[in-house]
Amino acid sequence: MLYFDKLNTDHMDILKEIGNIGAGNAATALSQLLNKKIEMNVPDVRIVSFDEMMELVGGADHVVASVFLRIEGDVSGNMFFMLSLEQAKSFIQQMTGHKEFGELGISALQELGNILAGSYLSSLANFTNLELYPSVPALSVDMIGAILEYGLIELSRVGDFAIVIDTALYEADQVQDSLNGHFFLLPDPDSFAPLFRSLGVEMR
């Protein structure tokens, strides 16, 4: 029936490891960029309905800043790096000295997303030996539902569920908020088999 019925716990562990390696490298990049200690949580891999996915990050109405990249190549999919507005403003201030979403702020945030997503994906590419070609990142400050919907279009053609690899980053000296900085990797349905195969695990 559906592709995620074929996933066992080994597959889920591999997806977790992908989140771990990708976000770990992104955390290092962020730490170097801001000269601060950045921590990350244990990656969470879940099979969720589209509605549940919106709830994971505070509900469809909740406003966030999000960088979006489309990945093409041996494996395709969508990637989001989402920040709460407070965290986005804090990053903008640390990078530019201004605390607003002006032209400079938006540009800085886009570049931040570019660097983080780039380090996530290049570590994934190294780890799997897959060719991955990310698109130029696009930034949007809007409702979560409207943003995530975009990454769900391809998935919605095969069902109403998504496999989400979710990893959160946060500054070490801050209270961990539910939405400090989240990476969401949403592989396309056809991409799971080649992804697992690249790591020597077959999907039946």
Partner: peptide, 17 residues
Amino acid sequence: GAQMFQFTTANLDIMRI
């Protein structure tokens, strides 16, 4: 029916959804 992200590259069909 908004276009949330502007892209100039590949996969135009899906992008104009």
